[in-house]
Simulated assay, not measured.
Amino acid sequence: MSSTYLNAWRIAAIILVGLNLRPVLASIPPLLDQLQAAIALSDSAAGLLTALPVFVMGLGALSVAPLRRRMREHHGIAVGVALVMAATACRLWASDANLMLLTGVIAGLGIAVTQALLPYFIKAQFSSGVSAIMGLYSTAIMGGAALASVASPVLAQRVGWPQALAAWAMPAAAALLCWLAVNRVGAVAPLIANAAGHAHTARSRRWLLAVFFGLGTGAYTLVLAWLPPYYTALGWTPAAAGQLLGAVTVAEIGAGLLVSVAIGRLHDRRMALFMAIGLLLLGLLGLLFAPLLLAWPAAVLAGLGIGALFPLSLIVTMDHAATPAQAGSLASFVQGVGYLIAALFPFAAGVIRQHLSGLRPAWMLMAGICLILFVLAVRLRVPHAYGKP
């Protein structure tokens, strides 16, 4: 089999894996009111349904180095997808809050392993077009969230909420089979040990990248967890609120695809970052000041901002890595710290909702964080020593 043909199949497998990294999270918010009624969840505990898996994603990414020493990265990715599949399937029997949270922990670990190893895999397997492939992969992640947010309430109406949540194990199983089949066809480049792989990246720059990724991803987890409950509290049906979240994620997909197409022409990523943050800020202001009148425009604007910001954050991180080993080490650190930060957002919003009887303060806080993102983005020009000028 030619390398071009094999690489095309590998890209398809990467996209399919990406599609299955968010349904386990995105399927819950449109059904949150039903879940809270069925298993007696407080608003704070409901926030943990998103926050806890994201927190585990962070811890798992920081701890993935031992796994990388024990197995090749494509095997580790298979393990991660298998954990996501198993956790999602177990939701069929998750009849109380503790079991539901446990499935989130297991899924978060699987997502962490997969997301920490895939940048290494992409950097190792593709000598060119890494930024575009990272853009496609991150867009696929958002596409899976879109599908789950729209389809889960429809499935719940027909078969019940446990079955609707567990149904996402089936596409995860398909992704696992595809990944195993594609990566058995040809030899996969072995891991390259490089203990000092990221030594050239200044510690302050690593932390800058991690904080920027964490705050930007915090916007994603906040909207993912609490946009549907925000609108059901305003009188919308769960299906309509799920469709609104679907509009957010469809906008995210469009923005992610645009980033994938245009990223090769942008040697200085900062203008794209400024535009993404600005769109997110406009969407948040719409949710704050005219949530009913501007529901759909605000959702689309927020989705465009989040959808561009997520892949750009990953691409800027990869810009700072010259080798696959550096890419793996830096991605693990940035995603690990970043997801720990992002996990705070949905939990904090749940506490705010429980004690202040609404989510407007949470949107206001996120709008303020957008101003911090603007300041951080100014410093994210890629140095010549790390990537393209």
Rank of each mutant, 00 (worst) to 15 (best):
A61Y: 05
M85I: 03
A132M: 14
A13V: 10
P23N: 07
Y120H: 15
H74I: 10
L31E: 11
G129D: 03
L48V: 04
I28Y: 09
P23G: 07
F126G: 07
G47H: 10
R68T: 12
L118E: 00
G143C: 00
A140Q: 02
I15F: 15
I111N: 00
M142D: 03
G129T: 01
G60E: 00
T139A: 11
W9M: 14
S27V: 11
G110Q: 00
S131R: 12
A38C: 03
A132T: 13
P53F: 10
Y137G: 03
S44M: 12
L117Q: 01
M85P: 00
Y120E: 11
S27Y: 08
R22T: 05
D96Q: 06
W93F: 15
E73Q: 12
G104N: 02
V130P: 06
L117K: 02
I77H: 02
H74Q: 14
A38H: 09
A13L: 11
A51G: 15
L101K: 09
L136Q: 06
Y120C: 00
D96A: 10
L48A: 13
R68V: 08
V54Q: 03
S138L: 14
T88I: 03
P119D: 05
G110S: 01
A78V: 04
H75G: 09
A94S: 15
P30D: 06
Q34I: 13
T50V: 13
A40W: 14
A112P: 04
I14L: 15
A82K: 04
